[in-house]
Design a protein around this nucleic acid. Structure first.
Lengths: 107, 107, 107, 107
DNA sequence: ACCGTGGTTAGCTTTC
DNA sequence: GAAAGCTAACCACGGT
């Protein structure tokens, strides 16, 4: 179910009643617009970067590399990194189990 | 099976023998590494940006906004933009139909 | 790895031991075959329909219409429908924000 | 580049000048609408069938089968069929090379 | 080179 | 409130 600001109390204080009330043009409406625009800018960045990645692959292909292979390499290296991270995390859990204070210090 | 460099001719010229052959440590190996690392950096950027977006939503939720609503707004605004783009494209197609030369000039 | 039947209990009851075990020729194997064939029939339908769509476009082209234009029109009309749906959804979210109980009644 | 009916001749005969002209409301406009609606109906069929496939998988999952595995099976069987078809085609080519007339009769 | 499809992942929902 | 199931975005692939 959709709650937008479940149980909106009578709203004495503007700063505590955001959401989608009738004061959309007020201070909160401004805030909302800022948030929306911020998200949109970030999503634009994201797809720009995706474009850049595509370009790199296109270039690589242009000089004779096989794109599919490179994708595989990137994927495998990523898996390696994640595996490493997981192992590191496990190590920390062990350390914490053996000596919580020391683990806290080292982290 | 992955073909990495279709034209595996004797390779007299380094610049024409990319791929991941046994000369991985050579000039092409270096080039490949550069490409892979470039892609990895860009993908890191991309997921960093995804993180930022998440943070914005989390923050918005913290000050009382409903995340679902904001997502929906962002989605609709995006659809608006895409629809506009699609209509513009259709218009161009129509113009070509009516007068290809004029359309060419205006584009 | 592919897990086919997580709960591999001793299987006294056929109805609770599906999967692709060694009893492939048994009751469950039969069931599996039915499912696979059902899916295959449906996928056949799907690509048949895709063929039909292609034929319509080919015919349209044959009588002088521009396929790209028609595709664009279809796409825009689809976007219209989706946008309408999205806006309706947003409206509901807003209504919940303003008065959850009333919204519940109206939905 | 977008051509909608490249080089539209002066159009003396309505039946030979479809496309996107200014007579959109006329006989050709009607024809266009029929085509668009036909495509839309077929695309609806297509996604309905896709829905049906999903349902089958959901049901299969419900009785304990692993969906991913079944997908693999369907895919492999499809590849088999295509391979068979390719081999059959190759056989026909051979037969045609050896005895064109006989091949013609058998096809 | 683009479009459409299929598979994967993440977010949202629902249940315990 | 956490865990499981489901929907929808994302991404890589194959065909045209």
């Amino acid at each position: 179910m959709a709650k937008v600001a479940k149980k909106i109390k009578p709203a004495e204080d503007e700063t505590e009643t955001p959401g989608v009330g009738h004061n959309s043009g007020g201070i909160q409406g401004k805030r909302l617009r800022q948030i929306v625009e911020k998200v949109e800018r970030l999503e634009q960045d994201k797809s720009d970067t995706a474009e850049d990645i595509k370009e790199v692959y296109t270039m690589a292909k242009g000089i004779g590399f096989d794109v599919k292979t490179i994708r595989q390499i990137v994927k495998i290296r990523k898996m390696d990194r994640e595996k490493l991270r997981a192992e590191k995390e496990l190590l920390e859990i062990y350390m914490f189990a053996l000596d919580p204070e020391l683990a806290e210090v080292l982290s």
